[in-house]
Design a protein around this nucleic acid. Structure first.
Lengths: 145, 145
DNA sequence: CTTCGTGCAAAAGCTTTGCAATGCG
DNA sequence: CGCATTGCAAAGCTTTTGCACGAAG
């Protein structure tokens, strides 16, 4: 789904096309990586010579986008949520170590089978393109953590 | 791992056996379900005629327990973390709807294969006994959410 | 014009931290 | 007795909310 499709999608769902929304979507669309709400705000400021969108606005829009499946919201255990455009197909998953907090990225297709099973058995459309698994990395397990 | 094993485990790792720690572990051990830090505090008060363990103490201990793999910490997208004793073998997973926020429990063994693959390919010991998957439930998908 | 959305400021959680007092080993 | 640990109070962060103003359709 392209940037323009996204804007069209907003209108189709009865949302107005404000400058702020355009800026938020622009940043999300240019970043293939998950970002926090604050990072989104900063990037808007950097890219547009000091324009600052209020955090309240960013949060309000992220919530709406998430509820409408246009954005994926994930917790990586850092005390804040992170967001990616659902249509950015750079699917990847994370292994987060409970001891050293280090994050490792893992293969894309690891969860393909799981997704099908959840869909088939529960009628639930899981967004598994950006999942975090917690546990212990090799190093910390060795440390007796 | 029994309650006594847990206490012994604490000592073995150089931790002192305070009343507060005993109370926290007791509550965790009697609850097979994930609990928030606040719920843990409340249950301690209820079970022990008004004894109140400070939230700071609860958080400090939960963090330590989590870092040492005795407790599993999870985000269910409710704005706070939830905790279970790793040794409470009531493994289950959750499907959390991004639109209506409803939580569905799912089969235990859904992730067994995944766990083995993560271990084999990344040397990472994932604690998959209490995972939340986000997405859209059947109803909300129908609603065009 | 009407209604939706934004900014601002304040509040609401949840969680962490500093410090003096307490109690375990 | 010495040091880990607690309680208390305060602060820190992220996220949410109320309200008046401003902008989109």
């Amino acid at each position: 789904m392209s940037y323009n499709d996204l804007l069209h999608e907003l209108r189709a769902r009865g949302h107005r096309l404000t400058t702020q929304r355009r800026l938020i979507l622009e940043v999300l669309q240019k970043n293939e990586q998950h970002m926090s709400a604050e990072e989104i705000g900063e990037q808007i400021k950097n890219r547009h010579a000091g324009i600052q969108v209020d955090m309240a606005t960013i949060y309000r829009n992220l919530r709406w986008l998430s509820e409408h499946s246009l954005v994926t919201e994930t917790s990586l255990g850092q005390g804040h949520m992170v967001y990616v455009l659902s249509s950015n197909h750079n699917h990847h998953h994370h292994l987060v170590c409970n001891s050293c907090q280090r994050v490792t990225e893992v293969r894309v297709d690891l969860l393909d089978e799981l997704r099908s099973r959840i869909e088939a058995e529960y009628g639930f459309t899981a967004r598994l393109d950006h999942i975090a698994f917690f546990g212990l990395c090799r190093t910390c397990r060795g440390n007796g953590a």
